[in-house]
Design a protein around this nucleic acid. Sequence first.
DNA 1: TCAACATGTAATGCTTTTATTACATGTTTG
DNA 2: CAAACATGTAATAAAAGCATTACATGTTGA
Lengths: 134, 134
Amino acid sequence: MMSPDSMDAVFQALGNAQRRRMLDCVKNHPGCSVGQVASGFDVSRVAVMRHLAVLEDAQLIISDKRGRTRHLYMNAVPIQMIHDRWTSEYSALWAGRTLDIKYLAEQRAAADGGDVAAGKGRTATGGRQGESHE
Amino acid sequence: MMSPDSMDAVFQALGNAQRRRMLDCVKNHPGCSVGQVASGFDVSRVAVMRHLAVLEDAQLIISDKRGRTRHLYMNAVPIQMIHDRWTSEYSALWAGRTLDIKYLAEQRAAADGGDVAAGKGRTATGGRQGESHE
DNA sequence: TCAACATGTAATGCTTTTATTACATGTTTG
DNA sequence: CAAACATGTAATAAAAGCATTACATGTTGA
């Protein structure tokens, strides 16, 4: 299972287009160096290093320092885990492909009165009911 | 196609466990109100409202105000798009399941000298070579 | 050895995110 | 109509994110 924190790290790491491009770069050039990645981007080397560190913290990149150069490799495992979770969790919703709000509105009007609380609860809810699979 | 910016918005929105739980809550209770969601979380109603606004900006939530209450619905489309992209982009990497760094290291040592630049280019790269599909 | 090299760290500035409390607006309903 | 209700807005503050330049450390090779 994947902890919420590590999931945060992965999504946050991917939540930046520059960083996604760097990850793509590492994916397509396994074993490349920090400097090689930096040469392809418009920001400072230090900025690139920080981005790569964020990706490594999220375990989307694995690195291996030999001599004075650090070699970078992509690690698809975290993405794969999220992918698998989504597949199992949303497959039902994807069957209909596009969501019709009006249909859901009618559904709501008909069967109302369900418990909505889900989080840690300011109310005395206690447990959860199928929400938050992390 | 999905713009880098909207992709940022989706990942950033998902990069917070509290917010993912709120999205789960809306998913499991289509048509629920802001207040109903807020009742299940430990932070202020305003904070919940902001989180929901972030999710709506990312188009992960669609809302519909009738009278004095706003009704919330999950929209799976952005997640589905990312899912589809990942499936096509990483399926090759997932075949091997776990990544063996040493294997990649040897691969690197053997066939070296490939161009690594990918971004907008401090170097005179110009175009891209298969990287950054957004 | 010593210069070029590749990476790493420090100090700093600006913007964005996340949260708070207090107040405002509009809507039901007794 | 007025009280209770549901949402929205304002002002504020602490923390995190993203970028910079300048300097430090360790490594390779003529």
